[in-house]
């Protein structure tokens, strides 16, 4: 069960849970959990509401190795409350990012799967996400690369969508979705004519992995296989660190301004793909990953 790109093959990232992803992403047996489930640091707020808690509050954090290199890793459990961030969940992630500054691992890997703020403890969750953002950027400022991985059932939305784009680099599968307001939130608030959340093709071409890659919002698109995420994470580790300098942010500013100028009036992702000069944009969602990457290889990938 090994190949050149990693030790494991054929484990779907999309279907795995938070712990399974860590097991297959890191070197075998290297993971050491911090504040694991036996500590029973559960949410006091869910308890008050009479809702079931999780022993790890929906996030697994710890030390591990990837190809021998020491990393810190966090993995959100989408199955528990959609991976939403509450007080304890958020503090575990903030603490991990602060630990990175002390320990200087080769990278922090964030396996993001979250709807954002946990509404059952909304105020604490919102502040917690802001604390995650500050701790993440402090880790980056200290020269620690932070790499985000996205590809679970619940996608990466809300405040965690902002957290994701604060990372140095993002890896996504086709099933992965990344945005701010989830399609169902937009539909519920603004009406079905604004965004039909039941239209799966529309949802995926608007917030899915392929469009995010073409837009430059993520740097790598991989097969739905944990081994593929592992290989992409190792490749990312070889890249120079993206700094938070004035020059780097001015370059990002120009790219985002150009995107708004070029595509600001587009109504659909296919219009953007067409303007990018891609042939047959309607076919792109149907291509497998290898064919898709081949068909779109002429598009400059921002920050990749």
């Amino acid at each position: 069960m090994s190949d050149l790109s990693g030790r494991h093959r054929g484990h779907s990232y999309y279907e795995a849970n938070a712990r399974g992803r860590i097991t297959h992403l890191l070197d075998a047996g290297s993971f050491r959990e911090i504040l694991g489930p036996t500590e029973r640091l559960t949410s006091p707020h869910l308890e008050l509401l009479g809702l079931p808690c999780a022993f790890d509050d929906g996030i697994v954090v710890g030390h591990g190795r990837i190809d021998g290199r020491q990393v810190l890793i966090a993995s959100q459990e989408g199955g528990f409350m959609g991976g939403a961030v509450g007080e304890v969940h958020g503090a575990k992630l903030t603490g991990l990012l602060e630990l990175a500054v002390q320990e200087r691992p080769a990278a922090v890997l964030l396996l993001l799967e979250s709807g954002g703020v946990r509404l059952h403890e909304a105020n604490a969750g919102l502040i917690a996400i802001s604390e995650i953002i500050r701790a993440l950027l402090a880790a980056r400022a200290a020269g620690i690369p932070v790499i985000g991985l996205i590809g679970g059932v619940y996608g990466c939305f809300g405040g965690m969508g902002i957290v994701a784009r604060c990372c140095d680099s993002l890896i996504i599968n086709e099933e992965g979705r990344l945005g701010l307001s989830g399609p169902d939130v937009i539909e519920t608030t603004m009406g079905v004519e604004e965004f039909d959340a039941a239209d799966r093709a529309l949802v995926w071409r608007t917030v899915g992995g392929k469009h995010r890659l073409l837009l430059g919002e993520v740097q790598r698109l991989v097969e739905d296989d944990i081994a593929a995420f592992r290989s992409a994470a190792l490749e990312t580790l070889e890249q120079p660190i993206q700094d938070l300098s004035l020059e780097a942010l001015e370059a990002e500013h120009q790219a985002l301004s150009a995107r708004l100028t070029d595509y600001g009036s587009c109504q659909d992702a296919t219009e953007i793909w067409s303007q990018l000069g891609l042939h047959d944009p309607l076919q792109l969602p149907l291509l497998d990953i290898q064919s898709f990457l081949k068909a779109t290889c002429k598009i400059g990938r921002e920050g990749a």
């Binding site: 784009r165 945005g179 937009i186 603004m190 608007t206 587009c266």
Partner: peptide, 13 residues
């Protein structure tokens, strides 16, 4: 809250 903002990657902005 709009589809257009999501399409453009509002979280990135």
């Amino acid at each position: 809250l709009s589809k257009r903002d999501e399409l453009l990657g509002i979280n990135g902005y």
